[in-house]
Design a protein around this nucleic acid. Sequence first.
DNA 1: TTGAAAGCGTTACCAG
DNA 2: CTGGTAACGCTTTCAA
Lengths: 374, 374
Amino acid sequence: MITVKDVARHAGVSIGTVDRVIHGRGRVAEETEQRVMAAIAALDYQPNLHARNLSQSKTFLFDVMTPAPEQDGGYWRIPLNGVHRAIGRLTLNNVRIRRRSFDRHDEASFRAALDRFATGAEEPSDRVDGSVGDASDRALADGLLVAPVVSRESQSDLLAAIADLGIPAVSFDSRFVDRGAGEPWIPFVGQDPYQGGAVAGRLSSMLVRSPSGTVASVTLGRADEHLLRRASGFHEFWQRFPDVQRAEIVLSDRSEKEYLRGVQQKLRPLLSELSALFVTNAASELVVSALRKLEVEHHIPLVGYDLLSRNIDLIRSGDIDAIISQKPELQGYEAASALAHHVVFEKQLPDEILMPIEIVLAENVDSFIAAEVT
Amino acid sequence: MITVKDVARHAGVSIGTVDRVIHGRGRVAEETEQRVMAAIAALDYQPNLHARNLSQSKTFLFDVMTPAPEQDGGYWRIPLNGVHRAIGRLTLNNVRIRRRSFDRHDEASFRAALDRFATGAEEPSDRVDGSVGDASDRALADGLLVAPVVSRESQSDLLAAIADLGIPAVSFDSRFVDRGAGEPWIPFVGQDPYQGGAVAGRLSSMLVRSPSGTVASVTLGRADEHLLRRASGFHEFWQRFPDVQRAEIVLSDRSEKEYLRGVQQKLRPLLSELSALFVTNAASELVVSALRKLEVEHHIPLVGYDLLSRNIDLIRSGDIDAIISQKPELQGYEAASALAHHVVFEKQLPDEILMPIEIVLAENVDSFIAAEVT
DNA sequence: TTGAAAGCGTTACCAG
DNA sequence: CTGGTAACGCTTTCAA
């Protein structure tokens, strides 16, 4: 292994000078710099990043900003697991994770979380035991992982804060809405929603005996860009079948019971014709319940999204035929891995990391659950 | 961050003593040991593994033993990429990878590779430039990654060598054949082949209009345990349909041309009845060619295995309907990651790491290719 | 049985 | 502008 010492000897200078050349800090004579650079190239010197880290003895703090882990059926716990697994794998015990939760259905709660991020305040929920909290609890983060599932305006404010504080960030789950230049560039880790919808279309077409009747997409809950893109991927797929009617059902801002009633209402007139359903988010269960209430006697092919435990049950029981997973655990893992490499090792951030679009059937569902636990 | 120094101070001893307690080497007074252990527990001390590594300034050598990268359509390059990606991610610049290739169709070549592994000899192919090779080229490996796709007897010899030399090993792609106690336990990274076959069954059933006629599995090339298990998963799936006939086609040890002719011969009598095909390995292309030669006018649903470039083309063109991927890149990544954690950081090896059974259709094939490059 | 000191590869600081 | 030295957290060696 080649070290700074080797480089220094080879260039006939001290290691201090080599360090200065490597980091471009401090003044170095033109001619000396050339010699050092030549030595680095000749020996193919690769710095030992762990030694570098050690000598700086800095500890890093990453904020992870998502809806509360309980929301969306416990969905947000999953990427967080991935984050911890990534840091554990890298054996970075100088990185601390600080979770910053907000209520997905309440923009004010997001603004509050944003404010805590921007001021370095500690999270209220983390202090349940009434203890006092040391200095590190009131510190700006060295990096941010965020699922920006909020309004366009809130996104703007977050971007402004990120740019203002100069904190490196990675987004996951859904993208920041596209906007003009001037905004900071934030890498994205996640899935192409349109393509996910297309896969749902294809799967439903495989599940249908003969292409006819009506196919419908169902979106229950906040209909963000992401979910609407999934729906359009689905509908565009089916456009190629001229004999097939398409219906798009979207319901927002209701209680569980109201959703259930609403879906029944929307589905009833379609029932005689309905040949396939695509639920664009994790709400398949509500649709299955609605179909039961409507006493549909034949099975209607159903493709859902997200591998949550209640969906796993439904696919095992045969109520759902296929699920598309966006690999939330891997999203957290990759996002944290990228951010850590950037912040701790000064590597470049990638532009985006796309998750594969995973298809889950009753026959391979176990293989995914095993993998998720790793 | 808690360090040995903190522990030493808390226990009122020197850091040397703390180290002795941690590693159980050297004699320490009973009472002192208690105090140190108490301090470790009280402070929740976590050793800095990178500092440990640095102080030991040891460099590790991993042998990666697979069929030659060119074999099986370039398949073996893929896990090797994963291996390098894992080491890169962990930023372990004190780990060197040494590839040891053998010819999959020639047991003697495997024995030669095994011999090089056991003696620490360098690989002949690595010395094409005629240079001499330094001491490190003749060194026993500190760890082994191996795809044991060889006969039961060769596997036994490898296991004996591993046990004899006491070198930690991880297998991937396919398992060592089960055997009695006494053999060393080698973790496995890969996929459950039986379940993969079941998924192929399910997919083909979705692609068939009405379950009738004959479904066939096709295995071309060395029919190891692994491939036969895939075939049985497929056939067991179809058993539940009493009206469907099942056929199993297996051809080994021929040239490409002979395979092509052989498949035609086997398929011709089935053609009128044939409703679906499952190719258990990457050889789908040969089957597609055979179907073309046989001038089948209607499309026969075809499920294949392994996401190699020629299969990617076939799924894009619609000649193959679905591919099951065993995630070879991830296998290499996970196997190397596990081995590195064990050898470098002295973590326990997991019993097995199972890959998810991935389903690839024309609509999501791009999402997998993007992921593979990461 | 214990402590002190050197060294791993790097950075930071201070003198010259 | 440059070199020397201490320090990071840990292991190893040598004295005591």
